[in-house]
Design a protein around this nucleic acid. Sequence first.
DNA 1: GCGCCGCTATATCGAATCGATATACTTGTG
DNA 2: CACAAGTATATCGATTCGATATAGCGGCGC
Lengths: 230, 230
Amino acid sequence: MLDLAILGLLEERDLHGYEIRRQLRSGLGLLANVSFGSLYPALARLERAGAVVAAEPGGDDGAVRRAVPATGSLSGERAVLRSRRSAGSRSRRSKKVYRITDAGRQMFADLLAGGSSAEDARSFGLRLAFARHLAPGARLSLLERRRAQLRESLGEMRSVSGGAELDVYARSVAEHAAEGVERDLEWLDRLIAAEMAAGGMAAGGMAPGEMVAVKHGSEVVGRRTEKGSR
Amino acid sequence: MLDLAILGLLEERDLHGYEIRRQLRSGLGLLANVSFGSLYPALARLERAGAVVAAEPGGDDGAVRRAVPATGSLSGERAVLRSRRSAGSRSRRSKKVYRITDAGRQMFADLLAGGSSAEDARSFGLRLAFARHLAPGARLSLLERRRAQLRESLGEMRSVSGGAELDVYARSVAEHAAEGVERDLEWLDRLIAAEMAAGGMAAGGMAPGEMVAVKHGSEVVGRRTEKGSR
DNA sequence: GCGCCGCTATATCGAATCGATATACTTGTG
DNA sequence: CACAAGTATATCGATTCGATATAGCGGCGC
């Protein structure tokens, strides 16, 4: 799940760990608390898997290095220069800029489209945030899958907490959670409507030349327009 | 965090693992996906720590056993009887009913009031759901601490995503998240108002005999009634 | 009347994630 | 110029997740 986020950001531009974390925290709001304890292992994992390559400014490889600092950190660059100029140059821990590879791009596409089974809010939000990399059909199917899940969970919530035996506080928490799910559903309906309007098409179909580069596993489930219950 | 949830449920009645999970999933909506892989280790942990005691129906201890099944599972009880009646009786894996101890109650109070530093939505919701076990002052301080956190994070969100460079999907996710935080703030304001109305008291004070059994660490932070921004 | 599916129930394993902490360099501030 | 605060990478132990194994039970269908 973190892998998806990292690869998604690296699709845009090369970044180093600290920057990735910053973008995760502020940019999306989701994943607002990824810690270094998960980020750096994830980066190491991705590097081992060949999905990304790291370029340390002290290394021999001159290829990367042009990466966007994205902070006002001229300082970092200067520090690098200084360390390279100084004698020993070993024993300097510096920025490690990561770049996505072709294998990484493939992995990103798989992660984005693949995970068919039940996903939590974080994972869905993440997928949707990168939905521009999905084919329109897969996009729609992502939205509708999520809607179905939320409808189901709302039903469960309502059926249980409709009864008594919860005190004021617990009841308030449960109700607020249910309202949140309702808002999510309205939001999803708006998104689905927008998607259908943009893509044309009546029933979950796809345009002929659409299934490009993105493998989505045979489940486009043609949108049964049930609008009961609410 | 799971410990808090488990102890909170056990304050109410004795339960076995499967039931605890069910209540966590449906009852609160939060913690909707705790898996056995975290639940059973947590129970074992709590038992080791002396916070709960387990009574297996096959054991010598006749004390517990009166636990509420809470499902319509007469079947389970019958099965237990049968196995106890039958000869060997070894090699039967049956329900393990957990009961909270005094040490567990103390631990629950500490967990509920203690964690002063930044908490996520799950942890806060959990605390609030059990807020009836808190003294009114601690309750208010919990709510206001959360409000302060949300205000801050909303500020960050707005300042960042107000700008451009996000495509339609990412922007929609970010905006929806921000709206969710706004709703949370409104909700908190309602709760705080209700709390103040119920408890009397103007500025975060407490009634004389209030600080009972619940240790909250010296931070009642008298409610600066800023109503700007938002 | 018996095989099989689904529910209840406990448990474990490896991997992912969290939260705290260590290290080291730079920049701004009193 | 000492010192706090920000940037940056990394590791450790504990917790949590997701999948899987095991086993008894009732119901159903044939």
